[in-house]
Design a protein around this nucleic acid. Structure first.
Lengths: 157, 157
DNA sequence: AATGAAAATTTAGAACT
DNA sequence: AGTTCTAAATTTTCATT
C-alpha cells in the first residue's frame, strides 16, 4: 500500500461518504482543524485512489425506476472464454447495475433496476434468455428495501 | 409528481451521477448553456428530491474490505412484528450495506461487505445465527465483480 | 504536518431579455 | 427559461512555523 491511513484520514472518509458536498471549511471544523491540511488530505486520498469518485445519489423510484430484482444464474458451460463473453454481454445491458461472479449455488448474481414488472419481464425474455448456456436462473423480486447504501462503516478499521 | 423532468434535467442527472465534483461552469459547457440556469436546475433537482445526496465513492478493497457476500434468508415465522424486528436488527449491523425484503425462494436478501472470509464467518456465527426463526440461509460469496454501480442509465426514460 | 493569509475561481443571486 | 454581470464565498496555493 502506498501509505496507510491514520485516524484523521478515516474520519475524513466517513464524513465524505455521508456527504461530499460540504465546504472544506465545514469539514475542517468537524475535525477541529483548519482548511489547508484538510484540503491536502482530501487531495491525497483522491490521488492515492482511496476516493474513487464523487457522485450524486438519485431517487430511483422518483425517476420511475421502481423495481429492483436480484437474479442468480448458473451456467451450463464454464470455459474461460465463455465466462468472459457472458460478463461482457451482461455489462452492456443498461438495466444491470451489478454483476458479481460468485461461488455457491450460482455462478453469477445480477442486480437489476427497471421501471416495473413488465420491464423486468421484457428484460428476461428479450435479453437474458437469449444468452447461451444458461442453466438454473432464479429471480428475487424486491418488495421493499430496509437499507441500501455504499457507505462503509470505517470505525472497525 | 411535483414536476416532470425534461431532457436537460435528465442530461444533468446523468452528468452528476458520473461525477458530481465538477463546477457548474463545466457542466453548463457540456450542456451548451450558461451557469445560472444550470445552477437553478440543480438546486431544483435537489429540492424536489430527485437528487438525494452527494457522496464520495471509496475503494473498499484498498481500505481493507475485500469481501462481498450476498446472503439469502428464509424465515420460519412471518408475523409482521417479527419481520420489523428482524429488519431493525439487521440494519444495525455495520457489515450490512443492503437489506431487501424479497419474494421468491427467500424472504430477505442481504449484501455484506467485510474484511475477509474470517470476518464473514465471525458475522455468521456471532451475529446472524443468533437471530431467532432463521430458516434456510444461503450465502453467495463474491469471487470477482464485473460491474458495481449506482449509476442508472437514464437514456431509456 | 499544520497555520494563516493571499490569489484564483466559483457560487449565488439581481436585473434584464 | 435563458443571459449577463457582480458581490460574496470558497478553493487552492504558498510562505512560515
Amino acid at each position: 500500500m502506498a501509505y496507510s491511513l491514520d485516524k484523521i484520514d478515516l474520519q475524513l472518509l466517513e464524513i465524505l461518504q455521508k456527504d461530499s458536498n460540504q465546504t472544506t471549511k465545514r469539514i475542517a471544523e468537524q475535525l477541529g482543524m483548519t482548511t489547508s491540511p484538510v484540503f491536502e488530505r482530501i487531495k491525497k486520498l483522491e490521488k492515492e485512489g482511496y476516493i474513487k469518485k464523487y457522485v450524486a445519489v438519485l431517487d430511483n423510484k422518483k425517476i420511475g425506476l421502481k423495481l429492483t430484482v436480484f437474479i442468480g444464474i448458473a451456467l451450463q458451460g464454464h470455459t474461460r472464454s465463455y465466462l468472459e463473453k457472458f460478463v461482457k454481454e451482461i455489462n452492456n445491458f443498461p438495466e444491470i447495475v451489478e454483476c458479481h461472479r460468485v461461488s455457491g449455488n450460482f455462478d453469477y448474481l445480477l442486480k437489476l433496476v427497471v421501471e416495473d414488472i413488465e420491464a423486468y419481464e421484457t428484460f428476461i425474455i428479450s435479453k437474458l434468455t437469449l444468452l447461451p448456456y444458461l442453466g438454473n436462473v432464479q429471480s428475487l423480486i424486491t418488495l421493499s428495501t430496509g437499507k441500501e447504501t455504499n457507505e462503509i462503516d470505517l470505525s472497525r478499521i
